[in-house]
Nucleic acid binder design. Structure first.
Lengths: 230, 230
DNA sequence: TTTACGCCTATTGTAGTACAATCTTAACGT
DNA sequence: ACGTTAAGATTGTACTACAATAGGCGTAAA
């Protein structure tokens, strides 16, 4: 990883996690050079990347400003991960869950209609990896993420596929906040995933959509509980 | 507009429109400096932006490569506009229409549930502007785009709002390809928009969703015809 | 012939300086 | 109090230099 990449992540996180209030001015390029101990060249490239992600607004002769939060590109996997890492605001969480609730069932449906043999192999492989890692939560979660990503790919819709990284980031953030330690919960999760995979393999769109609706609904319910508890 | 912005658009368009085959190597930074008559500094910033948009893959010591098309960030308004400007591939068009058909009806529904008085004023203003510009197609289209954007904003879902620029780019591209010159067509369009606005104003989600389904369906139909005709 | 080694070149990453262009601010004079 | 002017601050662009390493080429050994 290059110094530029590193600083992009560091500075991006600082902004996304509220180090600087939206709308306010950031330090000048010269100050940032000192602060991060690097050349102006690197700082400018970092700024260009963060501006493309809509976190920063660079105005010539005036300075750098934090974009208003509602302009941030939440569909960018980096931005989403940075924001979610440090407990995001409830509005964003609700918006994300709402959108996910809209598109995931349709993704499952499309996957059931279009999955090729190759797609099915990928989905099944990740299901099996989940199954055999019930006692290793980190591995289990990563397999779960790959399972859903494999389904996404099976839609063969390039626009939907763009969302893959963002959805993965969302899943990771949810995993970090919800504990599926208890046995009954794990069994239920595996059963749901089994049902979904089965529906896709049998090329049954209705069953796939229904299976997904249950999962999404329960995830949303968990998120609501977490929010209420905190 | 700065030189960097200008070259980002120029080079980005070249790549997005197939000047260089996906997967192949691009000219080196030094060559690009000569080709675009600029400093390496500017070229590197251009590259950073296009890499963030997933059009370019910069590999240290190896060179610059065009990303595979299915990695391009089609949810970025620039990328989408560049790609669509020069007749995109049918797969992409189909994917876009499919996704739009999924989310637009729900957007209409949410807008009907949540639109504030301010939102309604914005929507109505743009409807009226469409109405009074039936004979000025460019103005009519821009008003149409703002009409749909106002509805998007009325969902009060920040994730959905991120899609606004991309959807506007998509609409512009569709307008450029479809001719609504004939009178009957225009009347139908206005009627559909009136129905949608009316449903949102009356806070009737079902009616809003239904009105939108008709519009989306007809747009998809038009796109299919255009594709068949070419 | 094949393989291993080392040298050379090409290429991106980082640092630093210099100047241009213009917006902001403060000082100044009336 | 107000308009003018000048200085300073800040981003945009250009150029040079060096670092670090992947890849290609040639050479020599097995």
């Amino acid at each position: 990883m290059t110094k530029t990449d590193w600083l992009t992540e560091l500075f991006g996180k600082q902004i996304a996690q509220g180090h600087y209030a939206p709308g306010t001015a950031l330090p000048s390029e010269a100050d940032l050079c000192v602060q991060f101990d690097t050349s102006r060249n690197v700082i400018r490239e970092v700024i260009k990347v963060l501006a493309t992600k809509k976190l920063i607004d660079a105005q010539r002769h005036r300075g750098l400003f934090v974009m208003p939060q509602d302009q941030w590109n939440y569909l960018d996997a980096d931005v989403l991960a940075w924001v979610l890492e440090k407990g995001a605001n409830p509005d964003l969480i609700y918006s994300l869950i709402e959108v996910r609730g809209l598109i995931e069932p349709m993704i499952s449906r499309w996957a059931a209609e279009r999955a090729t043999a190759i797609d099915l192999v990928a989905i099944e492989a990740n299901y099996n990896e989940m199954d055999s890692n019930r006692n290793d939560l980190p591995k289990f979660n990563e397999a779960d993420i790959r399972f859903h990503k494999a389904i996404l790919m099976a839609t063969h819709n390039v626009v939907i596929q763009q969302l893959a990284d963002a959805i993965s980031a969302l899943q990771r953030a949810i995993f970090d906040r919800t504990i599926l330690a208890d046995h009954a919960h794990m069994e239920l999760t595996m059963q749901e995933h089994a049902d979904l995979f089965d529906a896709i393999r049998r090329k049954n769109p209705e069953a796939a959509e229904k299976a997904c609706l249950g999962m999404v609904g329960r995830t949303a319910e968990r998120a609501r509980k977490q929010k209420a508890a905190q």
